[in-house]
Design a protein around this nucleic acid. Structure first.
Lengths: 146, 146
DNA sequence: TCCTATCATGGGGTTCACCCACAATAGGAG
DNA sequence: CTCCTATTGTGGGTGAACCCCATGATAGGA
């Protein structure tokens, strides 16, 4: 007989996501930083400075929420906001050297969580899983698209 | 150059989960039912009646939260709670014929969401993804474990 | 000049996961 | 039997995360 919950990927991926979330949470519990802070810093470091609206799109994050996160990151001087001379509505966000340093620390923690999550899989299987997950995302959602 | 967000499965799976969540939400938007209602009904149908504490463990759901969901489901007569004669603290939850009927409807919607989510993947790839996701979950979390 | 669109920002609202407390009950130690 | 402890269902409260709407400033085109 079929157990439908274990057949439904929408359900499975939710469980795995929750589990992954807990692992990341445990790793980040030592500091005041949340996973969004990591995402923002990583995006800025890997793909360069960006206008807030672009950054929100890259991370598939609500613009209102991004404002709060950037406020926190900027207060601690992990990022800087500077006005765009070409368009005075825009603010260009960039990571600071201090932010780069924090990112390196957080990256170790996230990598560790990743390793715990994938402990049961071989290196090949890990790659396969990552590729399949990436292909499931619509283009706009893909972290390295845009 | 490496884009770390697209390499971190903990991050990827979070994005995919959110996307899947939205697809399910869209499908369920026609009715008042949430994905937890589906999960509860599916677990009761596939694995039989259960004491609330067991059910919460099966679904990896907080016991307090389960109470509220069961209240809603019971009010609409999709499930019944009956006292366990062997242990008067316990209440045994079972799905009703009415609940079975609702489950069949919801299952179609969830299946449809699943199909949308996996549109980019071949049948083989879908199976591979589901298997890998299931293996990533610890035993206690696995929907068909316990 | 006017109309529309976009930007950052603020506020509120909802869902979800999680935690603590508590009364009722069970079960074992003495 | 009397204590002590554990478990169960339940309620309340918290924080994170996602989402929507409004607004003032600015840009750009008709």
């Amino acid at each position: 007989m079929t157990h439908r919950l274990s057949d439904r990927v929408v359900w499975l991926v939710g469980r795995v996501s929750l589990h992954a979330q807990r692992l990341v949470q445990d790793q980040l519990a030592t500091g005041p930083h949340r996973k969004q802070h990591y995402g923002i810093l990583a995006s800025l470091a890997d793909r360069g400075p960006a206008v807030q609206a672009q950054l929100a799109d890259r991370l598939q994050l609500d613009r209102s929420d991004l404002v709060s996160f950037l406020d926190e990151l900027e207060a601690a001087r992990y990022v800087v906001r500077r006005g765009d001379p070409d368009d005075r509505r825009r603010k260009i966000v960039a990571i600071t050297p201090r932010g780069q340093k924090l990112l390196r620390e957080l990256d170790l923690l996230v990598y560790s969580a990743d390793d715990q999550l994938l402990a049961a899989l071989s290196p090949d299987e890990r790659v396969t899983l990552a590729r399949l997950l990436a292909r499931v995302l619509p283009d706009a959602d893909r972290p390295d698209a845009g």
